[in-house]
C-alpha cells in the first residue's frame, strides 16, 4: 500500500470539510434564524422540475443570484419591506401541470404582513380564504394562486390549472401547519 495514501485521504477530507463549512456559514450568515424552509413535494405525482432556487439581495446574493434576477424590477417593493431571501420551486405532474411555490423571507413578521397588505405585491381583486391563516386567492383563468403569511414568511402558491384550486388550497394548508 502506498504510504502516502492515508495522508492524501486525510487531506482530501480536510479540504471537503472546509468547503462544506464555508457553505454552511454562508447560509447561517444569510438568515440569522436558520435556513430557508424548502417546500416539500405536494403529492399526486408532482415532482420538482425547477429548483429549489435561492435568491438573495443585491448585497447578499444567494446560489441563484439576487431578487432582480428572479422578478426583475418588481423586486424593489419586496426590498422596501425587508426582503432577505426567497426559495423558488416548481413542481410538475405527468400532465405537465406546474405548481409553483415561493417562500419569501421578509426579515420580520411586520415586514411580511406589510408586504401582504401592499397592492403592489398582492394586487386587488382577491378573495379571502383560509389555509390555516387568511390567504388572498386569485382566479384569472386558467391560473389560480394565493398568498399567505406565517411569521416572517410571505408565501406564494400558484397552479396553472384552476381545476386544481382545491388541491392547491390543501397544499397551502399543509405548508402553513407543518412546514413553516
Amino acid at each position: 500500500m502506498n504510504r502516502y495514501l492515508p495522508m492524501r485521504a486525510a487531506l482530501i477530507f480536510l479540504i471537503a470539510a472546509m468547503m462544506a463549512g464555508r457553505g454552511a456559514s454562508a447560509e447561517k450568515q444569510r438568515s440569522g434564524s436558520g435556513p430557508l424552509p424548502i417546500p416539500p413535494k405536494p403529492g399526486r405525482g408532482f415532482s420538482i422540475s425547477l429548483g429549489p432556487q435561492l435568491y438573495g439581495t443585491r448585497e447578499q446574493p444567494l446560489k441563484d443570484g439576487d431578487i432582480f434576477k428572479f422578478i426583475d424590477g418588481g423586486g424593489v417593493v419586496y426590498l422596501q419591506y425587508g426582503f432577505q431571501a426567497v426559495v423558488h420551486v416548481v413542481f410538475t405532474d405527468k400532465n405537465k401541470n406546474d405548481l409553483t411555490v415561493d417562500v419569501f423571507d421578509m426579515g420580520s413578521d411586520a415586514g411580511a404582513r406589510k408586504a401582504f397588505a401592499d397592492e403592489s405585491i398582492c394586487a386587488d381583486g382577491w378573495r379571502m380564504i383560509s389555509v390555516g391563516a387568511e390567504a388572498k386567492s386569485y382566479h384569472f383563468e386558467p391560473d389560480y394562486f394565493l398568498y399567505f403569511v406565517k411569521r416572517r414568511y410571505l408565501v406564494y402558491c400558484h397552479i396553472g390549472d384552476d381545476g386544481m384550486s382545491a388541491f392547491l388550497n390543501e397544499y397551502a394548508n399543509a405548508l402553513f401547519k407543518e412546514i413553516l
Binding site: 426583475d72 424590477g73 418588481g74 424593489v76 417593493v77 422596501q80 403592489s120
Partner: peptide, 14 residues
Amino acid sequence: TVYEPDADEPYEAS
C-alpha cells in the same frame, strides 16, 4: 404592466 416605484402611479408598462 409592472411595479415601478419611481413612477407617479407606482406602475408602468414593461
